[in-house]
Amino acid sequence: MFEAISNNPYRNLRAPRVGLRRLRPALPALIFLFVFMVVPLSSLLLLSVTKPETGLGNYISLLGDATYARVLLNTFIIAALVTLVTLVIAYPVAWLLAILPSRVSQIFFAIILLSMWTNLLARTYGWMVLLQRTGVINRALMGVGLIDQPLPLINNLAGVTIGMTYIMLPYVILPLHATISGIDPAIMQAAAITGAKPRQIFWHVMLPLSLPGIGAGCMMVFVMALGYYVTPALLGGTSNMMLAEMIAQQVQSLLNWGLGSAAAFILLAVTLVFYAIYVRAIGLGRVR
């Protein structure tokens, strides 16, 4: 009986069984994940329901208290705004990179990657120099005579959005470029010869065909933006604090480990929900 099964020429076509033996090569990674991810997360979860007292008090106050709820809402608004602005700026760039001769687009890619590899803190300080009241941008605009008073570009929503959008751009440009490059130019030519105007080709053909790239890029940016800390802390104001800042404040300044942990868990849960929605809508294979 067993002999017969093992001689079955189709046996390799069955779904492979994920036995413990097959997982052996992944063992170092699994141990790493367990020690540095599962254990700390479990202890955080424990903290969130035990400190200062046992129960769901931390979660109730986070979602019930107006101040905390505002931070949560603010986090979503900023993440959504950054995602939208990033997409609007990244799309034409990705398009241009897809149609430029490869020698030219290589140079642009080098610039984009270099900016990605530059230290985040250094880049954020760079934006502070540019955006502050007496910064380069305000002085230039006043020098030209376009404005009389310096524009409030820092320690507010504008500062956070500018700084974060800049940092997120490559994460949308790269997947979007991959998708747009994969669209057969003959499909655009076919649309044009049937009488479609460039605007119609964009809305009815190109945009729908680049949806997988848009989805992948936006998903990446939105999830990253939800948990962003350094840039909002340096470029944002107190009135639009994001969740990560609040967690740091609770843990570092107020030593309120329970509330901080609960906030971290809410962030994690929300991220997982968005990820699940994305996977359902577009499919795991498209997350590059």
Partner: peptide
């Protein structure tokens, strides 16, 4: 411009719009 020449064309590669049905493809022009 090509879109104003009122010429029909069939290409060597398959150029149907993959996100549209057959009827939507034919109705596109």
């Amino acid at each position: 411009k090509p879109n104003e020449r009122n010429i029909g064309m069939v290409f060597q590669r398959y150029t149907l719009f993959p996100h549209m049905t057959v009827a939507q493809n034919v109705g596109f022009p």
